[in-house]
């Protein structure tokens, strides 16, 4: 069949951004989106902090809401000690949230749909929380892998299980975000490509029939908006949870 084909994955291919300079230093189009996300975050902060009013305006309310949301998440999940990690959790949360949300816009690269990106973030969280564990408890942190209250003869079996369970954290953390974002974007592309296919192959009838995938895409847009927020939240709360384990060892 001649005409358009569905290229659901082309949207994820990397190119270099920022013109010749970007090409020289391998600054990619996903990095452009990251820069955009970071810029939006900083801009929102700058807007929110412009008046510093006692009764906040719209932008200030938004920033304060985000602040208190992540603040409460840190305190509730990690405890009072969690405030040490608050800026880190906030950075990760806002970066992923903005990445997910900006990725929903046409022509914006969804960098959270790249496994290399999510895996790097998850590995950082994993290494960091493990480091915090060893920093807080020294080598006693290894006891984390020895479940309490089980007979000794079971330990040689249970300790490897605990270690594998622990090591699988960055994998599940990164794959969850990557899969959710990729799936949504692929679905969108597939339905949109389907509309083109219908129109090209069936003419006017096809153009009318393509209302179906169009409405599906509209519904999907709402769902993706939800997923974008939810996955950023899940990533952040799991980061807090791992830090909680590192600080409290239980």
């Amino acid at each position: 069949m001649a005409g358009p084909t569905i290229d659901a994955l082309g949207q994820f291919s990397l190119t270099t951004g920022l013109g010749n300079l970007g090409r020289a230093v391998n600054f990619t189009n996903s990095n452009e989106a990251m820069l955009g996300a970071a810029a939006v975050i900083v801009a929102v902060f700058a807007l929110g902090l412009k008046s510093k009013a006692l009764v906040p305006g719209r932008a200030q309310s938004l920033v304060e809401m985000l602040y208190e949301f992540v603040h409460n998440m840190c305190v509730d999940t990690i405890g009072e000690e969690g405030l040490r990690f608050f800026p880190l959790v906030f950075t990760i949360f806002s970066f992923i949230l903005l990445g997910n949300l900006l990725g929903l816009f046409p022509y914006f690269f969804a960098f959270t749909s790249h496994i290399a990106v999510t895996l790097a973030l998850a590995l950082f969280v994993f290494v960091f929380s493990t480091g915090v564990g060893f920093y807080t408890h020294g080598f006693k942190f290894l006891k984390f892998f020895v479940p309490s209250g089980v007979p000794t003869w079971l330990l040689p079996l249970l300790v490897p299980i605990e270690i594998i369970s622990y090591l699988s954290r960055p994998v599940s953390l990164s794959v969850r975000l990557f899969a959710n974002m990729t799936a949504g974007h692929v679905m969108w592309e597939v339905f949109a490509g389907f509309m083109l296919l219908l129109t090209a192959s069936l003419g006017v009838v096809g153009a009318f029939a393509s209302v179906v995938p169009l409405s599906l895409n509209v519904a999907l847009a709402a769902l993706e908006l939800l997923v974008a927020g939810l996955q950023a939240y899940v990533f952040a709360i799991l980061t807090c949870l791992y830090l909680h384990d590192a600080v409290h060892m239980h």
Binding site: E162, S165, S168, S172
Partner: peptide
């Protein structure tokens, strides 16, 4: 390691559905 991994996966499931990380 395959059965060990399966058990560890179940352990993860238990943790995730239990809402707590326990350990």
């Amino acid at each position: 390691m395959v059965p060990v991994g399966m058990v560890a996966g179940l352990r993860n499931l238990l943790r995730a559905s239990g809402g707590k990380t326990g350990g």
